[in-house]
């Protein structure tokens, strides 16, 4: 294991930034989100939950895909994809890392989404273990170990040091790049931190959520539950939960007219929006209850049914913190998941 003193972290960032881009939690106008690093920016890797998850590293909220130019009757399509510069995604928590696996299953499934894939291939992911999980966290319910996330490099942070352990070839390459800044040591500190954190995680109120009920065979029973009406009554139909969610991946494809042809872009969309399924001749989900149900059914039943039981929720708890009316997936699980959750 390697380590670097906390007060030298800026040197580490600068060193990485010499050859690669660095995407890291940065505080801007009071809020911490992943941004491209630059000298003088206020890095905040201690922040447990960035407002937006790091998914926009691979799946940006808005992304131009192609451009159309018309000359007379002739149409020309310009591919806007470019070579992606190598990037380091730094400080990813265990839940968010797991979320990338969830996204991979969608975007890397045949046919591969090359926009996602090219960013994914160019990125080295440095994860950061949690040491101060909060009450809204429930990654343990999904079998995630917040004390030892995977990734190309895993790091742990305490009051004095950042501990560093490469897990993959990409991780080794990155380690070599910053070798001069790292020193040996840290095994005992990391072991102690893992143990201490595990104790806290066990005590978190949602750590033992029971998900047994959410199986493909219960699809129709869950879908038909009369409880959806009550659970969704306060739902505003905004997209906060979907946009802060690390696994939500629905998108829209739209055209924008510029002075120089038409740009086709894709952008995040939300199944909570009334126009999400709107067609010229009708809408398959006309009520907010249906839209609300779709989101949770997708995360807890549909997606696992398509992906060998992998849930499309990682327990990051962003929706728990951010829903304006405090509706969230935990409440749904508790309501529908049977008495094990009482």
């Amino acid at each position: 294991m390697l380590k670097i003193a906390k007060n030298k972290l800026n040197d580490l960032y600068a060193k990485i930034n010499e050859t690669m881009g660095l995407f890291i939690p940065i505080k801007k106008a009071g809020e911490v989100n992943y941004h491209v690093w630059g000298e003088g920016k206020e890095v905040s890797i201690e922040t447990l939950k960035t407002v937006k998850s790091p998914k926009n590293m691979f799946f940006p909220q808005t992304e131009n895909m192609m451009k159309f130019k018309t000359e007379g009757k002739n149409l020309e399509i310009i591919d806007l994809r470019d070579e992606k510069r190598p990037f380091v995604l730094f400080g990813v928590r265990a839940c968010d890392y797991k979320a990338i696996e969830v996204l991979d299953k969608v975007f890397l499934a045949d046919p591969v989404d090359s926009f996602y894939q090219s960013r994914r291939a160019a990125t080295t992911i440095v994860t950061l273990a949690c040491s101060r999980p909060e009450e809204g966290c429930f990654c343990k319910a999904f079998g995630i170990d917040a004390t030892a996330p995977q990734g190309d490099v895993t790091t742990w942070l305490d009051e004095e040091y950042l501990y560093w352990q490469a897990n993959t070839e990409k991780g080794e390459t990155l380690t070599k790049l910053v070798q001069e800044l790292l020193e040996e040591g840290g095994e005992t500190e990391v072991a102690a931190q893992k143990e201490a954190t595990a104790v806290i995680i066990d005590k978190l109120p949602f750590s033992n959520l029971n998900l047994d009920k959410f199986k493909p065979e219960n699809l129709n029973e869950l879908f038909d539950s009369p409880k959806w009406e009550e659970m969704s009554e306060a739902c505003l139909g905004c997209g906060t939960c979907t946009f802060v969610c690390p696994t939500c991946q629905c998108f829209d494809i739209r055209d924008f007219k510029t002075n120089e042809g038409v740009v086709r872009y894709r952008c995040w969309d939300s199944c909570m929006y009334s126009d999400f399924t709107l067609m010229a001749h009708g809408n398959s989900r006309t009520t907010q209850m249906q839209r609300f149900r779709q989101r949770f059914m997708h995360k807890l039943v549909y997606y696992p049914s398509q992906n060998d039981g992998l849930y499309s929720c990682v327990g990051c708890g962003r929706c728990v913190n951010k829903c304006p009316q405090h509706l969230n997936i935990v409440k749904v699980v508790k309501e529908l998941g049977g008495k094990e959750n009482d």
Binding site: D269, T277, V301
Partner: peptide, 9 residues
């Protein structure tokens, strides 16, 4: 991938 024509699984 875009998610909108999803019915059940």
């Amino acid at each position: 991938k875009c998610g909108r024509c999803n019915v059940g699984d």
